[in-house]
Design a protein around this nucleic acid. Structure first.
Lengths: 132, 132
DNA sequence: CCTTGACCTTCCTGTTACAGGAAGCCCTAT
DNA sequence: ATAGGGCTTCCTGTAACAGGAAGGTCAAGG
C-alpha cells in the first residue's frame, strides 16, 4: 500500500503518518521510486495508534503502548499502569474544566447580555475569583 | 513597579508579562535604564488577564475581553457572547474527555494487571472501538 | 509522444502560550 | 572592588501536527 491507501484505511491523514515515521513510531519500506510502502502489519500499527490517540494518549504514551503491543512477553500490569496514569490525567483535566465551567457559568448567568455597559462578567474578571 | 513586583502582585511569571507585551496585550512604560515600568492600571490589566486565562479563555479571547473591559460604551451582550462561546468550548472538551474516559475506564476495568501478557486494553486498541 | 491529473517526495513555516537559558547591563550593599 | 540580585534581549524548545511550495512519478487519454 502507498501512503494514501493506508491513510484511508487507518483513518489518519498522510501528513500524520509521515510525522509518525519522522519520530520513529513506524518504519515503512521504500519502493525504488522513493514511495513509502506499507504492509498489513504497518496498517495494524497505524490503526492502533489512531485509536490510542483517539483515547487521548500522548505520543510518548503511544510509543510505550506500541512497544508493549509488540512485546509478546509483556505483563498486562505494565499496560494497565500506562492506562491508569492517563485515566488520572483525564480526571485532572475534567476537574479543571468543571471548575472553570462552574465559575464561568455563574458569571454568564448574572449577565443581562443587553446593550448596557454594566457587566458582571467583566466585574468578576476584574476582582479576585471567589473560590468558595 | 518593576516587572518582578508586578509579576508577584498579578500572579503571573515575568516571562509571561514580557510575552504579553510582545503580542501587544500590555504596554508598560520604560525607565531611562530600559527597565519596564508598570502603573496600577497595568497591574489591573494583568490581574484581569491572569483571571481570564485562569478561566481558560484563549489569548485572543482575552484580547477581546480586555478591549471590552476598557471600552466604557461596550454592550454587556458582547461580553456575554464571548463568554458563552467559551462555555460551549469547555462543554465540548468535557464531553470529549468524558467519552475517552468512558472507553478507557472500561478497558482498565477489564484488565487483570498482572504478570501475564494477555491484556484487554491492548486488545481493545487493536480493534475498532465500540461506540454503542 | 505528449500532456494532464492524481499521487508521491522533501523541506520550510506556522500554530498556542509560553519556559529555559545564555550573554550582558544595572543597582545596591558590603 | 566585588558579589548578588534583578533586569534586558535573543534564541531555542515544547506537542502534534497542518498548510503549502517545488518538484518527481505514474497511468490514462489524445
Amino acid at each position: 500500500m502507498n501512503i494514501g491507501e493506508v491513510a484511508q484505511a487507518a483513518g489518519l491523514p498522510a501528513k500524520t503518518i509521515r510525522y509518525y515515521e519522522d519520530i520513529g513510531l513506524i518504519a515503512p519500506l521504500r519502493d525504488a521510486n522513493g514511495y513509502r510502502r506499507f504492509t498489513e502489519a504497518h496498517l495494524h500499527k497505524l490503526a492502533f495508534l489512531a485509536r490510542a490517540r483517539g483515547l487521548g494518549f500522548s505520543i510518548e504514551q503511544c510509543r510505550t503502548l506500541l512497544a508493549l503491543y509488540e512485546d509478546r512477553a509483556r505483563a498486562s500490569a505494565d499496560v494497565k499502569a500506562v492506562a491508569q496514569t492517563h485515566l488520572a490525567e483525564i480526571d485532572a483535566k475534567m476537574a479543571e474544566l468543571a471548575e472553570m465551567r462552574r465559575v464561568l457559568a455563574d458569571l454568564v448567568r448574572a449577565c443581562a447580555g443587553d446593550h448596557r455597559p454594566d457587566c458582571p462578567i467583566l466585574r468578576g474578571l476584574a476582582q479576585p475569583i471567589a473560590t468558595d
